[in-house]
């Protein structure tokens, strides 16, 4: 939740995807950026530059108000799908 408010850079997203899903969601890290750019174009993400100790400055992506709304909507939808699948599994 903290990342949604303070933002996260592309490399951080790749690391989180790998760590939090135990490597289940393996994506080629470079392919994240076209997706991030589209979300930015759709005004679901904002971006600001941040200095990096390790080289060129990096972009930090933050959810916009609309992005946050869509994120919450999708979270509810996915939770709902899993709950229904669980019910089906018990039947």
């Amino acid at each position: 939740m903290k990342n949604h408010e303070s933002g996260i850079h592309g490399y951080g997203i790749a690391r989180e995807l790998q760590e939090k899903t135990d490597g289940l969601l393996q994506v080629k890290e470079g392919t994240l950026y076209p997706i991030l750019h589209r979300l930015r174009k759709e005004r679901l993400l904002n971006v600001y530059d941040e200095k990096s100790d390790s080289g060129p400055s990096r972009k930090v992506y933050v959810l916009t108000g609309e992005g946050d709304r869509v994120y919450r909507q999708l979270t509810v939808l996915v939770r709902d799908i899993f709950q229904k699948l669980e019910v089906l599994g018990h039947d």
Binding site: H9, G10, Y11, A14, E29, G30, Y33, P34, L36, H37, S52, S54, G55, P56, S57, R58, K59
Partner: peptide
Amino acid sequence: LIADLRSHIHEALN
């Protein structure tokens, strides 16, 4: 996009 990739590669390598 290229600027993002360059900074990603540096970060990952370091």
